[in-house]
Design a binder for these strands. Structure first.
Lengths: 138, 138
DNA sequence: GATATATGCTTGACTAAACAAGCAATTATT
DNA sequence: AATAATTGCTTGTTTAGTCAAGCATATATC
């Protein structure tokens, strides 16, 4: 009666829940949440370590207001800095600060450890295949 | 620099986010959220269509209080019913009502449709493999 | 060049969930 | 039998997000 596609959705979301929970608890050592880590991650990926808030929201799959709310405390503890865009006064750029960069690098170690632990049941080949499938669906 | 395990976690959670969002919007036609669907799903799976709240919480990966809060409105609109356990007055059983069953069956059609649409980029074989990997990790 | 429309961001109000604390009933210890 | 510990559930409080509305700036149209 139950179909494989539906089962997949259910298992997939269960897994995600578990992964985030685990990673979150590992990252808490560095004083950041999974969502905050993701912000630092995308900023670090950006060539100038700077992004527009709306692009950040897009990448995170979040609303613009959600990003505003998340960034406020991160600015307060100087993980990121606000910059203005001289060409367009509407946009307010977010920049990864030096502190933020350091925290991100530290947190990345924990993140990778956690990631390895969470996926150790798969062989490198299986993991590679799975990442491929996952990326295809995103 | 970036490792495949970490990339996998990131892609996996991105995907999950997308899946839930899509399924949620499809289910809204039936007046229920993804989480509520999951409750109905687990109740439907149970042989007596009845579960203890704490077991439900366990299956959903939620806290007991979260379940209490979710069930309150569902009881109000009669999707589920509260039953007492004659052997243990501490537990309050949750039962899938007839209405709940009907809604669940209707919603399942939408759910399966959405699931198929969301996974159509994978061949049946790929999907089967992926479900296998996912289940292994949960 | 004036006005309409679109874009980026923030704020207010709300919702879903978590955590911690507490109550009530059960089970274990003595 | 009395007390302690555990279990199941609920409630108060807090946090992370959403959506809708609004403000400021930029772009397009006439």
């Amino acid at each position: 009666m139950s179909e494989i596609e539906a089962d997949f959705i259910i298992q997939q979301t269960r897994l995600s829940h578990k992964l985030i929970k685990k990673v979150d608890s590992q990252l808490s050592v560095h004083g950041i949440s999974f969502s905050e880590y993701m912000i630092l991650y995308y900023l670090d990926c950006a060539p100038t370590k700077t992004m527009r808030r709306i692009d950040l929201a897009e990448m995170l799959g979040m609303s613009a207001s959600g990003v505003t709310r998340m960034l406020a405390p991160m600015e307060k503890i100087k993980l990121v800095e606000k910059e203005v865009n001289p060409r367009d006064a509407r946009v307010s750029l977010v920049k990864l600060s030096d502190v933020g960069n350091t925290i991100y690098n530290d947190a990345s170690v924990s993140f990778k450890h956690a990631a390895k632990a969470l996926t150790h049941k798969l062989t490198p080949d299986q993991l590679k295949k799975m990442l491929g499938f996952t990326s295809q669906l995103v």
